[in-house]
Design a protein around this nucleic acid. Structure first.
Length: 583
RNA sequence: GCCCCAGUGGCUUAACGGUAGAGCAAUUGCUUCGUAAGCAAUAGGUUGAGGGUUCAAAUCCCUUCUGGGGCUCCA
């Protein structure tokens, strides 16, 4: 990525300067606040301020007004050389800047300052030349944020804003955000009756309604078929297990925060599982494995429970009960690369079927300085990271490397997406685990009958969890699912009550062929029935009146509103064909 | 967990100190209709829960629950 070019770019400078403009306005209206940081983000900028009271919507209005004034004032923005006493005076009033300043000094870097009018900020730059260039800026929201993103630090007040080069771009972004709201999976999920949340059940624990269950089980069926072809075997394991199992797996020391608290039973302490791996490891270790059995691929749509912070839960996107498209591949050191490659190819093939195009890979590495977070086996980390990197490079996949994002047992490759609001989400994951072999004493007998303890485990979840995956599908398709996933594939509706018997016969025929058909016999106008079918997002709408009864042909309306006359038989054929080819 | 915003019948929402009103959906009747809403009637809410202020609370205050947004894309 060409970072320097990006940071010097006009848009980047506009956004950075807009953050300063915001800070200038805030300092003018609220002289007591201390400034935090004000970086550029995806579609604009934010600035954090140290202040007890949060900014109210009225405050934002005042700040916006002040910013407009400052833009009109056309102040030049300059890099400033501060004299020692000026610097001291500035830092004396800015506790957070002082902290940053000291960090820079400690790193041996020379702090620089930028300013406009009487406003000064510790800043690397670069900026636009004059505040008059900051016309297409709009503040969006205020929220709380922690200093340096750490909940242990003090809470700051953050203000977000959008900034663009032209008014058209700003308007377009605002429109995009508004549209995204319409396609929000929560809204469509409610409209289409796909899932529900109940107070009495609890936060982050969604219920799949009949229509959502159809989508979920079609996805699962697809995974089951694909993975069976790829040589996976399938198992089911319990939702809870004894403390000792999770001690053995390392989850309790390394992942305790993510687990629900234990349940004390008369025969010991039990935990809800937060991962399926320990169970699969036990299955592997149940008997002596031969080298001929490897790679052994154990799959399960396992349901796991994770105690996510309540404030982070969101619809289906972030939940506490996750139905995972999980599998563990047990293989030798030599087999790792090929298996990883096959998994990455499987991910790509899944995504092609679902019509995903804009995604990228993220190589998530460990951090040897965090031995409390990651298993302390430096030589294994190096090797595993190198293997993952080389596969990505060989397949020429677009990827970024990120430190300190690995699982506790090894590095991973995540597949990243942006949701309708432009927020980054992890969809799939492939993780290499070199810790399990020791903890679970995984081994196999080699060709000479000798025991080999070098069993590597690949954890993989190409289709994420049902929850996150379906949320993504809802937003991607805007509720208009392709036929094979669609809850209502064909909606049959009668023109008048005389046609009921004929419609019922057709309906029965389609059901028997395995088509998800629904029948609307209501005493309503045909216009109204069509309208409800459209709102339900049925793929095909079939009106049944006297003409159809006479000719035994159907008037089929598609989602685009085109109506076509077609014989019953060819229609059924076409529908079945479209379902099977998943297009 | 922390900060902000919100919570009115199944859904969308009005009333923002003066006895909770509408649309959709539902039910019933009339209508028997050809591709995005036929007509009418009926039923359904003590406004998330608990407490307080007031002559009077959906509306103001406190507590709590739930939902939504945010919590490093580092000067």
């Amino acid at each position: 990525m060409d970072d320097t070019e990006k940071q010097d770019g006009k848009l980047h400078r506009i956004r950075h300067s807009s953050a300063h403009l915001l800070a200038q306005a805030v300092k003018h209206l609220f002289p007591d606040v201390h400034m935090g940081i004000g970086p550029v983000i995806e579609d604009g900028f934010y600035y954090d301020f140290l202040r007890k009271e949060p900014f109210t919507p009225e405050d934002l209005k005042k700040i916006s007004k002040k910013m407009k004034e400052l833009v009109s004032a056309a102040q030049p923005i300059n890099k400033i050389e501060l004299k020692a006493d000026e610097e001291k005076k500035f830092l004396a009033h800015e506790s957070l800047k002082k902290e940053l300043y000291d960090e820079l000094k400690a790193k041996g870097e020379k702090p620089t300052f930028y300013g406009q009018g009487t406003f000064i900020d510790l800043c690397r730059g670069p900026h636009v030349e004059n505040t008059k260039e900051l016309k297409h800026v709009q503040l969006t929201k205020a929220s709380g944020a922690y200093w340096k993103g750490d909940a242990k630090n003090i809470q700051l007040q953050r203000i977000y804003g959008l900034a663009y080069e032209t008014e058209e771009e700003l308007k377009q972004r605002l429109q995009e955000l508004e549209d995204a709201e319409k396609y929000n999976h929560r809204k469509i999920g409610e409209e289409m009756e796909l899932f529900a949340l109940f107070d009495l059940i609890g936060k982050g624990l969604p219920v799949w309604l009949p229509k959502g269950e159809i989508i979920k089980s079609e996805v699962e069926k697809f995974a089951l078929e694909t993975e069976a072809r790829a040589g996976y075997v399938r198992v089911s394991t319990p939702h809870l297990a004894k403390k000792e199992l999770f001690m053995r797996s390392g989850h309790l020391p390394y992942y305790a925060d993510g687990m629900y608290p234990s349940m004390k039973m008369d025969d010991g302490e039990y935990y809800l599982k937060s991962m399926n791996c320990p169970f699969h490891h036990l299955i592997y270790g149940k008997k002596v494995r031969s080298y001929r059995e490897l790679p052994l691929r154990i799959a399960e749509y396992g349901i796991v429970y994770r105690n996510e912070l309540s404030g982070t839960l969101a619809g289906l996107q972030r939940v506490r009960m996750l139905s995972m498209n999980d599998a563990h591949i047990y293989c030798t050191k030599e087999q790792i690369e090929l298996e990883i490659e096959d998994v990455l190819k499987m991910i790509q093939s899944y995504f092609t079927t679902f019509g995903f195009h804009s995604y990228w890979f993220r190589l998530s590495l460990g951090d040897k300085s965090h031995t409390e977070k990651y298993i302390d086996e430096p030589e294994n980390w190096d090797h595993a990271e190198e293997v993952l990197r080389s596969v990505l490079q060989r397949l020429q996949l677009k990827y970024v490397e990120v430190k300190d994002e690995a699982a506790f047992y090894g590095p991973k490759i995540d597949v990243q997406f942006k949701n309708v609001f432009g927020k980054e989400e992890t969809m799939s994951t492939v993780q290499l685990d070199f810790a399990a072999k020791k903890r679970f004493e995984l081994h196999y007998d080699d060709a000479y009958g000798k025991q080999n303890n070098e069993v590597f485990v690949i954890h993989r979840a190409p289709l994420s969890t049902h929850e996150r995956f379906v949320a993504f599908l809802i937003e991607l398709y805007k509720g208009k699912f392709p036929l094979w996933l669609s809850p209502v594939q064909v909606k049959l509706m009668t023109v008048n009550e005389k046609n009921t018997a004929f419609a019922e016969k057709l309906f029965k025929e389609m059901k028997e062929k395995g088509i998800r058909a629904e029948l609307d016999l209501r005493n309503e106008s045909i216009g109204k029935k069509v309208r409800s079918a459209i709102l339900e997002r049925a793929n095909y709408m079939v009106t049944i009146g006297d003409q159809e009864e006479e000719k035994n042909s159907l008037a089929v309306r598609n989602r685009e509103g085109k109506v076509e006359q077609i014989s019953t038989q060819s229609f059924v054929h076409r529908v079945l064909d479209e379902i099977n080819t998943k297009c």
